[in-house]
């Protein structure tokens, strides 16, 4: 099992799907953030597995770069969460709907 590329890919795809499901189903913005992190990790797993398969170091470097990108995103995302919580006093992403299409004007 651990000999097969496909099993790693399958694991990665399961994690990727879980991440996607988290984004579509959860209102809590923390968990939305964590879901994105999980998806990035799933992609990392694919990279590393392919690197082992091709016996190349390149994908490991790519995975490393993706981790760094995730860190950068984390900084912005987490500070945005703080702003949102201060502004709206809530973590519920469903109530953030000022921009909803209305009959009246909003610019």
């Amino acid at each position: 099992m651990a000999d097969l590329l496909l099993s790693y890919i399958a694991l990665a795809m399961i994690l990727f799907s879980i991440g996607f499901l988290g984004i579509i189903s959860r209102k809590n913005i923390f968990i939305v953030y964590m879901s994105i992190e999980l998806m990035l990790n799933a992609v990392n797993l694919i990279f590393v597995a392919l690197g082992r398969y091709n016996e190349s170091m390149e994908p490991q470097v790519m995975a490393m770069i993706i981790i760094a990108i995730a860190a950068a995103e984390a900084a912005v995302f987490l500070s945005l969460i703080v702003v949102l919580y201060r502004n709206k006093k809530s973590l519920n992403s469903d109530i953030f709907n000022v921009l909803k299409q209305k009959d009246t004007a909003n610019g």
């Binding site: 651990a2 790693y8 990392n44 797993l45 590393v48 597995a49 690197g51 082992r52 490991q60 490393m64």
Partner: peptide, 13 residues
């Protein structure tokens, strides 16, 4: 996942 990376010969990662 880190453990799986180790399985995949990526100790640094």
């Amino acid at each position: 996942l880190g453990g799986i990376f180790a399985l995949l010969s990526a100790p640094f990662l």
